[in-house]
């Protein structure tokens, strides 16, 4: 294993990073949105299409994020205003998003991102930090969006733990009725953070189609949205841990491909199972160890209706 493996793991982990952060924000508001995969796919296709039409990276990213937020908005209306079952609403969003992306992606197969845009997303070295041996090479010789990911995780952490709005948000997720009684606008908090979740998931999808692949593939997410939902649990709803979780799974994602050259006598399809198997093992371990520090927001997944106690 050389350093390039770890550099590549960070790249592969970045879409996960955005998606995990998005789902984490949503869950902190007490809403369980299982539509991550769908919102990522919507973001991926809209971002890619915008990139082809306009050639402008900012427009492509903005389009992708808006597409993700549009999916999140549907989820918000259904689960916050209409109090629909969150599990079913999220699943439907995934089915809808998958259909949306293969519909919009019709005829995009084989199209490639323009060179000028690849240049925009290309790696560059951060002065000083990038000169640190090993760590600099792994973390600070990356593309613009990878750096954005680091910043997003830190900002999310500060927001949740160091601001009063973040405190309010956590109280909405922990005890909605108490937050409501304290005068916090519960529905507004829920909507805003569902939408933030959608923006981030859209960005995660755009990273896949614009930077990671960068050509069009049907079903480009390949289950990463679901892994992101599981990794929120692994990271125990803590944005700082998301950095570790995302890059660890970025590594698992690429290990199957990398290991081929070492000529192990294991089928590649078996190694491809690894991220999913490890996710399962983590789920089991997290649920078996019942420490309250890493427990989910207490009101997660429950509809809140003020007049119904």
């Amino acid at each position: 294993m050389d350093i390039s493996f770890f550099t590549a793991a960070v790249v592969a982990g970045t879409p996960l990073l955005f998606a995990i952060l998005g789902e984490l924000m949503t869950e902190k508001a007490g809403q369980l949105n299982l539509g991550v995969e769908g919102m990522m796919l919507m973001g991926a296709v809209v971002g890619f299409k915008t990139a082809l039409i306009t050639g402008d990276p900012f427009l492509a990213l903005a389009g992708a994020m808006l597409a993700g937020a549009l999916g999140a908005l549907i989820f918000g209306v259904l689960t916050v205003s209409l109090r629909a079952n969150q599990v079913v609403a999220g699943l439907t969003l995934t089915i809808f998003g998958t259909g949306f992306s293969s519909f919009m992606g019709q005829g995009l197969m084989g199209e490639v991102i323009p060179e000028s845009m690849k240049l925009f997303f290309a790696d560059f070295k951060i002065p000083l930090l990038g000169d640190i041996p090993v760590i600099g090479q792994i973390f600070f010789n990356q593309g613009m969006l990878v750096y954005t990911g680091y910043i997003a995780a830190i900002v999310a952490g500060l927001y949740l733990y160091r601001t009063s709005i973040g405190l309010n948000l956590r109280s909405v997720g922990e005890n909605t009725a108490a937050a409501d009684a304290a005068g916090i606008k519960v529905s507004r908090y829920k909507y805003i953070h569902i939408l933030i979740g959608g923006l981030l998931c859209g960005l995660a999808g755009a990273y896949l189609s614009l930077v990671y692949i960068p050509s069009w593939q049907e079903n480009v997410t390949a289950g990463r949205g679901w892994i992101a939902v599981a990794l929120v649990i692994f990271c125990r709803w803590n944005p700082y841990r998301v950095l570790a979780g995302a890059f660890l799974f970025g590594g698992l994602d690429i290990i199957g491909f990398r290991i081929q050259k070492y000529d192990f006598h294991i089928s590649q399809y078996m190694i491809d199972m690894l991220p999913y198997l490890v996710t399962i093992i983590i789920l089991i371990l997290v649920s078996a160890g019942k420490s309250s520090a890493g427990s989910p927001p207490a009101s997660l997944g429950e509809s809140y209706f003020r007049e119904e106690r």
Binding site: I227, S267, Y269, M270, D272, M273, L277, L283, I284, S287
Partner: peptide, 29 residues
């Protein structure tokens, strides 16, 4: 695992889909 430790079954069952798919791919190839 859901019965024993309340392990989240939504993600568990979903991950099992991918494991089954990879297993089937392995058999087919």
């Amino acid at each position: 695992f859901r019965a024993k430790w309340r392990t989240n079954e939504t993600i568990f069952t979903l991950m099992m889909n991918y494991v089954a798919l990879k297993w089937l791919t392995y058999l087919q190839y």
